[in-house]
Design a protein around this nucleic acid. Sequence first.
DNA 1: GTAGTTCGTGACAGCGCTGTCACAGTGATG
DNA 2: CATCACTGTGACAGCGCTGTCACGAACTAC
Lengths: 347, 347
Amino acid sequence: MAGDNGATLADVAQRAGVSPSTVSRTMRGLSTVSPETRARVEKAARELSFSISRSASSLVTGRTGRVAVLVPNLESWFLGAALAGMAPALAEAGMDMLVYSVTTPEERAHFFDHLPARRNADALLVVSFALSPGERARLDDLGIPLIFVSQHEEHRASVYVDDAEAALRGTRHLINLGHRRIAYLEPADPSGFAWSSRARLDGYRTALAEAGIEHDEELVRQVAQWQGPVLDAAVGRLLSMAAPPTAIFAETDDIAFRLLTVLRGANVRVPDRVSVLGFDDHAMAAAWDLSTMAQPVRRLGREAAELAHAVIGDPEANLERHVVLPVELVPRGSTGPAPRSPVAGGA
Amino acid sequence: MAGDNGATLADVAQRAGVSPSTVSRTMRGLSTVSPETRARVEKAARELSFSISRSASSLVTGRTGRVAVLVPNLESWFLGAALAGMAPALAEAGMDMLVYSVTTPEERAHFFDHLPARRNADALLVVSFALSPGERARLDDLGIPLIFVSQHEEHRASVYVDDAEAALRGTRHLINLGHRRIAYLEPADPSGFAWSSRARLDGYRTALAEAGIEHDEELVRQVAQWQGPVLDAAVGRLLSMAAPPTAIFAETDDIAFRLLTVLRGANVRVPDRVSVLGFDDHAMAAAWDLSTMAQPVRRLGREAAELAHAVIGDPEANLERHVVLPVELVPRGSTGPAPRSPVAGGA
DNA sequence: GTAGTTCGTGACAGCGCTGTCACAGTGATG
DNA sequence: CATCACTGTGACAGCGCTGTCACGAACTAC
């Protein structure tokens, strides 16, 4: 039984008493088959547990029925959610999802040298993957449509969120709560992830300028997103300022979680003394009661998958289409009104 | 440029001045090619950006060079880690990874009706997927080797952890800390995940029996793993007992996180008044300072991928091999010595 | 009733590879 | 010097489909 690859189209044809052509037409749902014949063929196919060999059909059609997805890893909540958004959309379109997780330098070298996706997929979705210029160029060699997800790419289809606008709105939320001293924590180690870190910082600055709050570069600090001590130091630095911040905007929820842990350990009450705002709406954000800017990650994935499907189906499709999705504030318990006591001065 | 599927083997042959057969032999690394010819062919292949069409070769060989993975979702940390373990192992073996995420009833129906993996993969890895008997039987129809990951399946290759032993050791750890009243929280909603919940509970009971601690069924409570109120109620029940537990063993880290949140909200100090032990070593466990039983999830994935590769390469391979991996205690700050005060009586 | 149209089906080539067989060239053996 | 084994290469069929073309039957129109 094992190794038996199943019945062929010809087997089904014989059983149904028709030609292979007719079986092929039936399986592909072409309309030029009479209802009776169709029923007979479908019955035979079911009895033989037949299903089309994509290898054979793609040899003829040049289409593989597969979409490849390139991700910088598989363990982050973000990428899982993005894939989770793609999977149903692709399945619905009858396409399979090929996943390439490329993390280490060895994996990178291997992937970009061999381009295993070549001739194995009809499109490549690149998700939040920081590419070198050489790697970027190499992807064009694949000869299939590229779609960038959660990253912006000139002259190529891209699906992403408006980071600047989101950071702007998040910062405004803090300002509306009365905060004037608002710190910003940005990741020092994007670790292969690509997103518009710069845009988020810009949005933060725009909001401050808008409110006439003078910008204090001391309040912007780089912290390690995953590792230990650096964040403690940054927080210590902020808490020991003459005019310490009453709110901290973390560029990612991962940073916010670690920030909350540090603050809790230091007995700094949130949000009574310091408000904390994150970015992403990480799966655990609700459990941490973290206010955050929610990225529609699943939708990002879904839109990308749908775009891929559209592009594959239509060779004339616009290969430079950009889809920008909104980010919404999810207010939770980690943000509150600015305290009266520690800060005296206004703007 | 787009839509151009690249050079064929024949193009390379012509450029290198050899026959297609020789190019094929070269690309597959067969030994019967002279070094000079090999060099010439490789040069030509590189110049044309050639790579083998798996569709064509699999049509002949019957092998697809792909492994399919069936997962109940893509958003859990656990499955991401399992996939992350598989990916490099498969890449190294030159195989692609096809991911089928099957969550909703509609997706289930579609997957098991159409078996899209049929003839599209050389093996199927089933990861922690709770199958109905009908679905289970359907998978055998695929005609390819099945490998069960993080779940135990009679007469089929399986890679999993020793849940009973792990729960036994975890409970022993609590007993060694002086705890005698140890509660156990098990999930009421496995939500499509398959693991040996029963085995974990058994391990807990074995440890208690071993230590001569009488078993109190009141201390074992079912809680919703993802939803809200049920856990509060269970915790309330435990804390209002005449002899409340001094330690709580949560069957998953997800439960433990929610437990910690509830306890914090209720001002029950951990571990001073109640120790909390989790199970999984979730990516966030360190951030929560949660003591837990660490499953080697990545390794689970890697071993499964290697097993798949072995089985595919050798048709005579043992299709019923079982690999059992160990679970280790990771002691962190959520477990500590049993308090003196609240409980008087011993065993 | 003849010509034109549509519908449903079958025949057949060929997609790009691989596996088998054949065969020329080289060196070893007696 | 004839025989044999071995090495490196090419010729060719065929894997399981799809796309094109051809064709008979059943209509429609005048």
